[in-house]
Design a protein around this nucleic acid. Sequence first.
DNA 1: CTAGTATTCAAGAGATCAATTGAATAATAG
DNA 2: CTATTATTCAATTGATCTCTTGAATACTAG
Lengths: 183, 183
Amino acid sequence: MSTETVKRELYQSIAKVAQALASGNRLQLLEFMAQGERSVDALAAMAGVTVANASQHLQALRRAGLVAARKEGQRVYYRVAGDDVVRLYDGLRVVAESRLAEVRQLVNEFLGDRGALEPVLAEELLARAKKGLVTVLDVRPREEFEAGHLPGAVNIPMDRLESELARLPKKREVVAYCRGPYC
Amino acid sequence: MSTETVKRELYQSIAKVAQALASGNRLQLLEFMAQGERSVDALAAMAGVTVANASQHLQALRRAGLVAARKEGQRVYYRVAGDDVVRLYDGLRVVAESRLAEVRQLVNEFLGDRGALEPVLAEELLARAKKGLVTVLDVRPREEFEAGHLPGAVNIPMDRLESELARLPKKREVVAYCRGPYC
DNA sequence: CTAGTATTCAAGAGATCAATTGAATAATAG
DNA sequence: CTATTATTCAATTGATCTCTTGAATACTAG
């Protein structure tokens, strides 16, 4: 095989990984899996798609080596394949947020909808999150987190905080995000 | 707009960035641009595609906010939009190399073809590069670099070394890669 | 102004992808 | 064994992507 051909296929193979990330539904599934392993139907419900569709997306992610699956009983549990995958997803989000005006606007609408944050604080937090300097940690209960959260935030309710903390990237500053009586 | 819809569009917007990276040709163009700004026809020649095709790919990258363009005379010079884009590309490559057996095999063929490196050293270098710990710096002359180089390596010939060194990411260990009388 | 060069635009063919649907497989409970 | 549940498979449709081709635009030199 010529060097040129090898080179071409090499880039094409890397592109396949990007292709696997090139779907909003798959990104959403990935984000849920980043919080821990989940069954197919749980992921389908979270992302709001049919089970068959979720299954296909999960297989696409698995073919790209981004997630792994484990079968237990009649359920199949999917999880991200490694920390580097989460980092890649974070990097993608960071670039998207800083480069696409469109995303910035959506993030603002999102925050506006919630309307529960002191604006200056929210802006500052987002600015730092955009630079990839911090991991945003959302310590509100799961239901509230599901109802709306900062993009890319990791949800770890207070009661699970200690046990899950070890899973987070260690080199980055961590900012806890919360509100209400829990703080 | 409902929170659900906003969420969906947000993920879709992030996916657009991944979509922009989901083409071997665009990745190759991006890698060339990471070395400095280049004109369309220079990029087209490097990637081995027609000028019209390169132009379209570059516009796709620009729409995603990954590259920027500057017009000077009758030429248009494209460059990566920021360091975070290069980091994202690196992250993508790292994940691809560690997750896809296919990529590992291609890398090996590539190194095998060259056959100019002491195997143990090459393995070790690649292993560290995979972990994202090092920037591989190829200091051989451009022609030799074009003929074949480690994936993701940055080519800076010796004579331009000093002036270009400032452009490299600062937090990572840099490994110079060379051979022959230049070392 | 004219010729030449660099880039972009526009239209089309072929390939690939996403979501839907209905059926097939696998595991479990009774 | 049968019914039930979880997941996957397979086929289809419509949408999107890639590359090619040829023309259009923008700039420069003479």
